[in-house]
Amino acid sequence: MTVLVAAVVCGVLALVAGVVFARSAVVVPGTAAAGSGAVLVALVPPALPGVVLAAGILAALVGLAPAWVRREEALAAVRSVAAPADVGRWLGRWRVDRAFAAFLVLAFPAVATAAAVAFHTWATSR
């Protein structure tokens, strides 16, 4: 029961933080979302496909959100980095590279956790 409650809390936290990450263009909630997703998978390994799917949807939002465009423009002005390039753009505003990077950030900890748990299970059951 405790595990289930903890898993639900992690799932909700991951979703909320993920949405904030996508809409606000701040990395901190992205880290929180990724961490929560990883804990959720550690608690309930079968949740992995759901976490990966959610990460994909949130990443698609990151690829579109105007806040990320503003962030890149501000970075380009302050840090002398190249202004947002056309490379990676698709369907107007959507940036494939940004969305894929966001997907990796959100999904990687959960996938790595699932792999570690699976390895541990296999190693101890040999």
Binding site: P84, G88, D97, R98, F100, L104
Partner: peptide
């Protein structure tokens, strides 16, 4: 720095 292409 918005170097998303390096993520993979």
């Amino acid at each position: 720095r918005g170097n998303y292409r390096l993520a993979p």
